[in-house]
């Protein structure tokens, strides 16, 4: 879109201390990052909390992003590392969290049947499969880019995508 600053320009401005530039980075990437985390964490509230942590981590480490480095790839790599790191503790505290979530005012956000069905189907996949499916099938990433973000061999990503697609199609009753 003409007039829209590039990622590199926004990163440079944010590195110089511009909160406006960083807020635009958040605006630009919040939906894909949250979407990715919602698919791999399954629990929507956990995912959104983690997405906030991803952007906070990005702000803290903005100077480590290499010149010319792809912001989107970098953000997703942070998200994946955070998701992996929290997977174990999330599983441990899931029961406690559900009790807390039920008390939240926004706990019963209406969701479409399709979204719920997808959420339940994704929960049947392994975390690595979910991540590959979330990036390549839902996000439209290439296998190569997904492999770079997830730090997995290309063949492994292809295999996860293929198996994940087959399993999801089976669970959702969709013909491939």
């Amino acid at each position: 879109m003409p007039g829209e600053p590039t990622d590199a320009a926004l990163v440079a401005a944010a590195r110089s201390g511009s909160d406006t530039a960083f807020a635009r980075i958040v605006d630009r990437y919040q939906a894909p990052v949250r979407g990715f985390l919602r698919r791999i964490c399954v629990d929507e509230t956990d995912a959104d909390d983690m997405a906030q942590e991803v952007f906070l981590g990005a702000w803290t480490r903005l100077r480590t992003l290499k010149e010319g480095g792809r912001l989107k790839t970098w953000l997703f790599a942070i998200a994946w590392r955070k998701a992996k790191g929290r997977a174990r503790s999330m599983a441990r505290s899931r029961k406690r969290d559900h009790e807390y979530q039920d008390m939240r005012p926004d706990a019963h956000t209406p969701q479409t049947e399709m979204a719920l069905a997808m959420q339940q189907a994704l929960a049947q996949l392994t975390p690595d499969q979910r991540a590959c499916v979330a990036l390549c099938l839902a996000g439209g990433w290439t296998h190569g880019d997904a492999a770079a973000v997830l730090d997995m061999p290309l063949g492994t990503v292809k295999s996860h995508v293929s198996r994940g697609r087959a399993r999801l199609s089976e669970l959702l009753g969709v013909s491939e």
Binding site: G35, R38, R39, Q111, T112, M114, A115, A117, M118, Q119, A121, L137, A138, R165, L168, S169, L172, V174, S175, E176
Partner: peptide, 9 residues
């Protein structure tokens, strides 16, 4: 065919 499910969430 899975796209509709992905878009929903």
């Amino acid at each position: 065919p899975l796209n509709a499910f992905f878009r929903a969430g």
